[in-house]
Structures are given as C-alpha cells and as structure tokens.
Design a protein around this nucleic acid. Structure first.
Lengths: 328, 328
DNA sequence: CTGAAAGCGCTAACAT
DNA sequence: ATGTTAGCGCTTTCAG
C-alpha cells in the first residue's frame, strides 16, 4: 500500500499538499492535478486508520440492535444507512443478540474505534451507557427508552396496544388474549398496558392475567405462548401479538390448529413484511421502522455536528391497517 | 480517554509493560496486578485505532451483502458472526443494496480500515476485486461466484431448481412456470437451468420461454412476475420461485387472486422464515444460509491465519421439504 | 522480565 | 499556497 509520502514524491510536492488535496483545502490547480495523477498511478487509498488516529474521530457510526434477523430492525437499519451514507458516514451494524455482554463489547469497540456516534436499541432497560457517554460521544436510543437523558426515538407503544385491542373488540371478538415481549422491556410493557386498559374497560368480566403471556420477542416465543393459550380451559377467541415475530408464531400455531385467522382474531403490533396471508385476515398496527431509523440518524448527525440542545424524545405515530372482518 | 502512558505512570511501569499486559506476553505477577489495577482505576480502554495503525491489521472482518432486508442474508450473517466473535473478531455488516458503486465504497473502506478479511455476496457477477486482492487480504465469496480464483461457498443451485420442479411434477402439476432473479446473476441462472432441464424433459410440449420470468430478487419482483403469469392466455398451474422473497410475492398475488396454494402449486427455493402458511401448502427447498455463513467465516479465518492452499469451492447441499399434496 | 525509542500514515499548527 | 514538523496511541525491536 502506498502512502501520501509516495504520492508526494511522485507528484513532486510535500505530503501535506497531498493531504490537502484529499481533504479539500486550497491547493493550486496544477498541484491538484499532479497529485491526483500520482495517486491514481500508485493506486493510493488514504489510510483511514491513520487519519482516525490523528483526527480522533471517524466517519462511522455504530448501530447496535438486539436481533439482526428481525425485519423490524433491518428495516430500521435501512433508514439509518440511507441517511448516514448520504452524509458520508458509514454504518457498522452490531448484533447484540439481546445479550448485555455482547452489547457491552460492541460499545467498547465503538469507543476504541473512535466511531463518532451510536444508535442503539438496547438489549436491556438498564443498559450501561456510562462509559460511552463519558467519552462525549452522542448516543441516540431507538425503539426503547434508557435510564439516560439522551435523544430517543420510540413508537407510540401504548397507543399501538390500545388500537390493536380496540380493533379486535370492534370486530366482535370477546376473549382477547395478549402475547407480549419480556415485561422488563418498556416497549413490551407499554403495549401490554394499552391492551389491559382497553380490555379491562370493555370486558370487566375477564381475568386479564389469565389471558396475558410474556414471551421472547421471537417466533418461538409467540408459538409457545399461543399453544399455552389454546390449551386453556376457556381459550381466547382473539389475540394481540406484541411484535411482528410473536405475531408470526401465533398465526403459525393457529393455522396448525385449523384456526386460521379470522376464525380466531389476530392483531399484530408491527408489520409483517413477508407474510403471505390475505390482508383482510389480520389486523396490523404498522410501526414506521424505517422512519425511526431515518429520524434517529438525523438526530445523531446533528449531535455529531455539535448541536447541544436538550435531549429530545420523538414518538412516532403508528397506523392501523384493520382486518375488514366484522364478527357477531 | 486515558492512554497506556497514563496507566504506566499510575502503575509505576513503562508503557511497553502496559502494552504487554494487554497483549498477553510475559510480565511478572506483581506488575500485571499493578497495571490491571491502574487501568481499572482510569477506566482505560486500549485505543484500537492506534493498535491497528501500528499492527497494520485489525480484528474485524467485513461482510458485504446485497440486501440486508432479506432474511436469507441476515441468517447467513448470523452464522458469520457466531464464528467470528468466537474467534475474537467483530464483523461489520455492509449493505451494498445490490449496487456496484456502494459495494465498491465498502470495499474501499474495508481496505482503508485495515480489516483483515472480507466475505462478500457480490452485487454483480463481475464485481471488481482487484484492488482488494492486491492488498493481499483474503476474500471469500458466498452465495455467488466471482471471476476470481478465490474461496467460495455456494448453494447447489441447479439441484435446487431441479428438485423444486420435480416435486411439483410429482404432485401432478403440468404447466409449471418459473420466476427467477436477474439472469446475469449466476445463482439465478443455475436455478432456472434446473427448472428448464426437468420441465423440458418431462413436458416437451411446453413453451418454456413463455413460462419463465426474470425479476428482481425481491417481493415486488415476485409479485409483478406472478401477475404477468396469471394474465397469460393459458396461465400456469404451478410456479417455482427462484428465491424466498420472490416466493413471498408470488404467494401474495396468488392469495389475492383466490388461488391459495396448493390450488396453484408453489415451490420456493430458499426458506420462508416468517410465513404463516400451512407447511403442507408449499414446497420449500431449504438453503442452509446459516451454514453458508459459518463455513465462509471459518475459511476466511483460516486464510487470515496464513493458510495458503489453493482456492476451494464448497457447494452446500440443500434439503427439500415437500408439500404433501398429491394432485391429479 | 523490563525499559527506551522508533515509527505505523496522516493531519494540523506553524512557518515561509 | 505550500512545506516542515510534531504528534495521535500503540507495538515492537533492541538493549540491558
């Protein structure tokens, strides 16, 4: 690999001039040409590591997510990436696998690699951001809140739970169960609270605790919980799924039991990007994941640019796509 | 951020000793303790950039994929990540978005950041790897072949096309269409060839060109092609989908037309991780994506370790999960 | 086993 | 506008 010294020598200028050419400061026409020519001839690529070491910052941002296989997060990643690359930043995707230790490792890497900012959907409500924040790096929380006073972009989780449940009630379902993610994750708790409030008011006779299940935010979690609910002495006639993957799991189990929606009502919080269901069979509360990524990236870029206004919380509105079935 | 000099001073040793402690070379018990203690007290994190600059290599590998929203690639990414992190490497995920320019940018970054190796599912058959290879960095191609003599891990694409088609024939379908990815991508071409060979032999009366469609490897591609096929004067009674997303699109359109599988036969090359279909409705040729990632990562790590044997090609066997429907 | 010192490639004062 | 030079933080000879 050639260096700016090689280029400088071939072009007959100083290394500093080469650096200037690659950084857009004022250099005379002719020297620019000479440098570019020499660089091309040597197949020169500036060494980012050296540059980063010198500048103490790099044009890369870390995006830490708990499940890279969840389309919700990859859709968000797309949003982040589009904004970032537009601004000349690359984004490094880190999969914490919902494990605090892995998450901590990636956070450490982000610091050690001088990345200029972090967008994180935390693995745990109490993720420790002390050391990152101590370095002065901006951090934007997405999807889930944190214990810190930082920018965050979240969904209207409670509203999502509310409207999903209401839709099922309007469609005529009565015993509406809920399968959510781990209770200690605030999004999961909020969505459940929405369901609880609506159903408690509308169907006071129901034992809500019997109808609520808290699983992992994954397909197998949804499957297991749905099996449990179906095994109840008095099984539910509808279910609200706390996220996309839980929804998939629940629908799979229902289908296997010959209870294809809308035979049993299903409302899913989150989009089902790869579903092959008829769009009228299941109610979907669309969560604007891409938009979340876009918003978070913009905010982060602002902070990287030096913006020091107080921390903001953006709550993204969701959009319900109701199953058009009216029941009994 | 504190440096080894700070730690050295606090611990009463030289910077070199601090470095040795963090790199596992022989240092006396007591000094190790002193250094660790000082480091902890200063909340010291080694600066990877400096280390990389000095060592001319970093423990990160780049994984370049054409579509981060395709579960096939994220599943593969998981495999790569598991192996890599086991070996102390972190993996940086780069989404080329099937664009050669974006891909080239990420390749450039990989070089400039001194990443120690690259796993790539190319955006284009003729992706230019010259500059990467010129640096001596190992590159492993996954999913798709390249013009270069490098390690590759691919699926048994032709066989996938063959068995998908055979299964549909065995189930009694007659006019079996094919929707594949862009013809210039070798995987797409091979899968199509499998379909063509089987169908040509078994149903010589069919006009294969009429029944073949080449789309993007995405849901909308599958949708558009399926619509076209259904609009044919004599529409097909079955279809082979060239990848998972095309399959999803095709099934969506069929469902919307009231032609839910297995009313029209569907065989998909690639797993459908988030479908809610009954498993007996659609034939799936499972592609071991995770395994592909694991294999590629292992090979890359070997190369990084200095292994210089001739380039290998690993072809991964697939597994068919037949729809258990027998027709006519 | 330990320390001193050079240097990885680049940028940013500081001169000129 | 351009060149000179001093590091950024770390690893790694080379001495001792």
């Amino acid at each position: 690999m050639s260096t700016i010294y090689d280029v400088a020598e071939l072009a007959g200028v100083s290394p500093a001039t080469v650096s200037r050419v690659f950084n857009g400061t004022s250099v005379s026409e002719e020297k620019v040409a000479a440098v570019r020519d020499a660089a091309a001839r040597l197949n020169f690529t500036p060494n980012r590591t050296a540059r980063t070491l010198r500048r103490q910052s790099s044009e890369v941002i870390a995006l830490v997510i708990p499940d890279i296989e969840n389309p919700y997060f990859t859709e968000m990643a797309r949003g982040v990436e589009d904004v970032a690359s537009e601004a000349g930043y690359s984004v490094v995707l880190c999969n914490s696998d919902a494990q605090v230790e892995k998450e901590a490792t990636y956070l450490r890497i982000a610091i050690a690699e001088h990345m200029s900012g972090i967008i994180i959907a935390t693995a745990d409500e109490h993720t420790d951001l002390d050391s990152v924040l101590a370095t002065g790096r901006p951090v934007v929380a997405v999807d889930r809140g944190t214990d810190y006073d930082i920018d965050e972009v979240v969904m209207a989780n409670r509203a999502a739970g509310t409207s999903a449940t209401k839709d099922l009630i309007d469609a005529g379902y009565r015993r509406i169960a809920y399968i959510g993610g781990p209770e200690h994750i605030d999004t999961a708790a909020e969505r459940a609270a929405g369901w609880r409030a609506v159903l408690g008011a509308s169907r006071p006779e129901l034992d809500l605790d019997e109808l609520a299940r808290f699983a992992t935010f994954r397909v197998d979690g949804g499957r297991a919980a749905m099996e449990e609910l179906l095994a109840l002495p008095d099984p539910p006639d509808a279910v609200v799924a706390g996220n996309n993957l839980i929804g998939v799991g629940a629908i799979q189990v229902l289908t296997e039991h010959g209870l294809t929606p809308p035979q049993v009502g299903v409302a899913v919080i989150g989009s089902l990007p790869f579903t092959t269901l008829s769009p009228t069979a299941v109610t979907v509360v669309r969560l604007p994941a891409r938009h979340m990524g876009v918003t978070a990236a913009r905010m982060l870029l602002e902070r990287i640019g030096g913006d020091a206004q107080p921390a903001r919380t953006v709550v993204l509105r969701n959009e319900i796509q109701s199953a058009s079935v009216i029941r009994g």
